[in-house]
C-alpha cells in the first residue's frame, strides 16, 4: 500500500513541530540553525507531497529551490556564529541579552 497525501502531511507536521520546539527551546545557535533546517525540510516534504497529489512538477521544483535558498541562509548563519566565536561571545542564545528581547 502506498502512503497517501494525509500520511505525508502528518509526517511533515510532526517534523515542523520538532523543528519549532528546537528553535524555541535549544540554546546553542548551531542547534537552532539545525532545527530551522528541519522546519524547512518539513515544508519541502509538504511541497513534494502536494506535488504528487496535484500531479505536476511545480511542487518538486519549488522544493529544490527552497533547498538552495536554505543552503545560502545557513552559510550566513554559520558565518555569524564564527564571527561571534572570534569575539569570544558566549554561544548560548539565553545569554544573548545585550538587546533585551
Amino acid at each position: 500500500m502506498t502512503p497517501g497525501l494525509g500520511s505525508y502531511l502528518i509526517v511533515s507536521g510532526i517534523l515542523f513541530a520538532i523543528g519549532l520546539v528546537g528553535v524555541l527551546l535549544r540554546r546553542s545557535p548551531l542547534v537552532v540553525l539545525l532545527s530551522l533546517e528541519v522546519m524547512l525540510n518539513s515544508a519541502n516534504l509538504a511541497l513534494v507531497g502536494f506535488g504528487r497529489y496535484v500531479g505536476g512538477q511545480d511542487g518538486q521544483v519549488f522544493a529544490l529551490v527552497v533547498m538552495g535558498v536554505a543552503a545560502a541562509e545557513v552559510v550566513v548563519g554559520l558565518g555569524l556564529i564564527v564571527a561571534m566565536e572570534r569575539r569570544r561571545l558566549v554561544l548560548d542564545t539565553d545569554q544573548l541579552v545585550e538587546l533585551r528581547g
Binding site: F16, V23, A43, L47, G59, F62, V66, L96
Partner: peptide, 24 residues
C-alpha cells in the same frame, strides 16, 4: 544579525508552508 536570521527564517518557513497548502 543572528536574531533577525533565526526569526526571519521562521517567517520564511511559515510562508513556504502556506504556499504548499495553497498549491495543494
Amino acid at each position: 544579525g543572528l536574531k533577525y536570521l533565526i526569526l526571519g527564517s521562521i517567517g520564511s518557513v511559515v510562508l513556504v508552508y502556506g504556499a504548499a497548502f495553497l498549491y495543494g
